[in-house]
Amino acid sequence: MKKALVAALLIIISIPMLIAVAAMPPHGDADSPVHTHVSARYIEHGEEEAGAENLVTGVLLNYRGLDTAGEVIVIFTALMAAFAVLITHPGRGEESGPTTAALDPEPGTEPESDSKAPPPISPVVSFMVRLLTPFTTLFAIYVILNGHVTPGGGFQGGAILGGMFIALTIVLGEDKVRTLLPRRAAPWMQGAAVFAFVAIGVIGAATTGYFLGYPTDASLHLVRELMMVVIEIGIGLGGAAIFATIFLQMEAE
């Protein structure tokens, strides 16, 4: 009964929505406002203005750089939120700082019960994950470094790296994988994307007078490309570290 009521209500809501989208400019029409206003300039001048053959990267890092900066902060917020919601061991690592207990229980000092043996994994799965790890890593690095030329970029590469990390955790157990995120370095890696953005932004402000400004001079083309690659690496590293940490945190809980 309730379900039928909800369905009826939603059908009523969807009617004005359908009428409105039907009145939108025709789908795929090259003369619609989407293609004739801001995009037109991006497509015409984007390559030399923004310095990236892949215009999506040009928009992400240059024209709308602040959005992407906000986006890396959103994912950092998710990490902070996961910590704030999931940490539940009062007393553990009380005086030695928060991240210790959260992330990296020091080997030897841990109570026995916490070092659980990894669950049995099929040897086939285990072998395949181990076999593919170097190739996955290589592919992820390629995707990160070529984001401004081909489809890809920091987020995509970071997601691949993070996925690989999670697969490794399942196969090898978390203790071994945690060594990849050392206690002292972990917060730097998790914040890498934010730091890369702010650093490049401040350099831009100092040289061009605008936050997140890139040198526009043709002779400085390589500098501009380097700045973009730095941001992409930061996003890739930070994204991977955040995905991995959230997963480890959920598993520990």
Binding site: V34, S39, I43, V59, R64, I75, L86
Partner: peptide, 24 residues
């Protein structure tokens, strides 16, 4: 148009973050 792709990339990251928090 490149703009929607950039917007959706941002949107996906936001969605991932919401998912992570909700699952936690």
């Amino acid at each position: 148009s490149p703009i929607p792709h950039a917007l959706v990339l941002t949107g996906i990251v936001v969605a991932v973050s919401t998912t992570a928090l909700a699952l936690s």
